[in-house]
Every structure is written in structure tokens, then in C-alpha cells.
Design a binder for these strands. Structure first.
Lengths: 131, 131
DNA sequence: TGATGTTGACGAAGTCCTTCGTAGATTGCC
DNA sequence: GGCAATCTACGAAGGACTTCGTCAACATCA
């Protein structure tokens, strides 16, 4: 039975699976299992169980018509990421994205390309708010 | 018995308590309880229990000499925030702070002051990486 | 010093997260 | 059709998170 709420806050293990599916667009249990196995020891049925739970929660949708059932993310990657970000923001940054951004930037060197892109975005934001 | 690991990933409920203590610098159980009570219904002993657990985990330290025991954060706010950020980064952003920053910025309008500050930081980062 | 209110320690219950083991269903091939 | 391999469902166990209830220790002040 699927829940009505879209479940915007996947748990840690769920994130690992989502990450694989985001990359592949669609995936079978085997696909995900083989991908994750390269980085950690995990059982095939464990992956399956998670994907079933995630389908119940509304994080994934699956096509049961084809035989190795094919799963997709129910919501776009960006939307889920934003849900997680908002959660972190509310939790630990008193809702201030500026603080979070500063911390994220100082934490780890970003590539020059990323820096440029961020600059561009800042410009757009400022232009957009000058109305 | 305190753990050796510094426990850089407080849970959701622990974050709420940390947030209060970050603001007050030091706090008794009663202080935290009264603060949190304004926003949610929570029992006094629940808060106490969390603060005891958090002390065990190494998130808080306390002075048992004074009678209403006084608690402080064991680590600076910034350090804990970075731990949480890193966790989110690893979880859902494939370790790319740039993506996370972009999402955070698009998510919610930042103030012009924040935007300026971010620009300044970007300049510094670029200057610093020009070796 | 004893009644009263506050503070602290402990234990326990309920839920959620994570992980499998087992066993039934389906498919592909000879 | 029958067998082997794969895929799916179900249930359960262990641990972590969250929340309290209870009771003991302590402080206060009349």
C-alpha cells in the first residue's frame, strides 16, 4: 500500500539506492545490487527489500509488467535533494541557506567551473530580485 | 561512559537541543526544556534523557559540580554543521559541494548581504587556488 | 528537621532502520 | 514438460532513535 505523502526524506541506505537509480535513470534490483556491491558488502535481498519499501513509501515506482521489474525514481533528483537540504537547513542552520552555503564552500575546494557557475547564479538572483 | 569517537552526526532530536545550546552557550536541562517547549510538546525527562545520551556520545560536556548541572556543546557549532553537511554531501550529492550550493541557492532567496558575502568567498577561493 | 518542589538516574516501551534467511513464483532452455 | 537459475515476497531479528514513567537525590525554607 503506497503512502499518500511523497516521502521527501529518504534514509541513508535509501539514498545510496536512489543515487544509483538517479544515475541509471531506470534499474532492476540486480542493477542496483551490482553497483552497490562494488563499494560495500550488501545482500541481494537486502537491496530488494529496500526497493520494495521505497516503492511503498513513494520514493520509487516500478513496472511490474516486465519481468525483471524495472524501477524508476518517483520524483526528480532535484526535488529529493531539496527536501534533504531543507531538512538539514531546519535542523542545524536555523533555516539560513547563506550560512549553509558558506560552510559548504569553505569545507571543500570546488572546481573553477563550479565557482563560475555559482557566480552566474548569484548574478541571476540579484538581477531577478531587482524588479 | 563516554565514547572515544566525537560523534559528528547528531540525530534530529539531538540537533534541536544542540541548537538551543549553541545559542545560549551554556544551559541547564531546564533552560533547554523551556526553550523547546515553546515550539513543541516535550517532556522534561525526555530532554534530560537526550542530554545524558548526548553527553555519553561526546556531543555535550557538563559540569556536575554545580547543582543544576550546566551543559555546553563539546565541539564548536561550525564543526558539527560541517559534519552534517559532509554527511548530506556523501549521501545525496555525490560529494559535489557545487551541486549542493547551487541547489541551496535556488531553493530559497538569500539576502543581498549573503550574496555579497558568498561572492567575496568565491573570489578568495579562486585567488587561493591560483598558485 | 521535615515538607515540598526541583533535578538526576534508570529502565522500558514503541517505532523506525537495516539486514537477511527462507521459500514461493517466474523464466529460459533442453 | 521439467530443471536450473533468477527474481520476488514475506517475515523476522537486532540495533538505533524517541519518548516517558518512576523513583531517588538534593535543595530550600518555614
Amino acid at each position: 500500500m503506497a503512502s499518500k505523502e511523497p516521502a521527501l526524506r529518504p534514509t541513508e541506505a535509501e539514498c545510496k539506492i536512489l543515487d544509483v537509480i538517479w544515475n541509471k535513470k531506470t534499474a532492476t534490483v540486480r542493477d542496483v545490487f551490482e553497483d552497490l556491491s562494488q563499494r560495500q558488502t550488501i545482500g541481494h535481498t537486502t537491496v530488494l527489500k529496500f526497493m520494495q519499501i521505497m516503492t511503498d513509501k513513494g520514493l520509487l515506482v516500478r513496472d511490474t509488467a516486465v519481468r525483471p521489474q524495472v524501477y524508476r525514481a518517483a520524483r526528480p533528483k532535484q526535488e529529493t535533494q531539496q527536501g534533504l537540504l531543507r531538512s538539514l537547513l531546519d535542523r542545524a542552520f536555523r533555516g539560513s541557506p547563506g550560512d549553509l552555503v558558506l560552510q559548504a564552500l569553505t569545507m571543500q575546494r570546488s572546481s573553477p567551473e563550479e565557482i563560475d557557475e555559482i557566480r552566474k547564479l548569484l548574478d541571476e538572483m540579484e538581477a531577478g530580485s531587482h524588479k
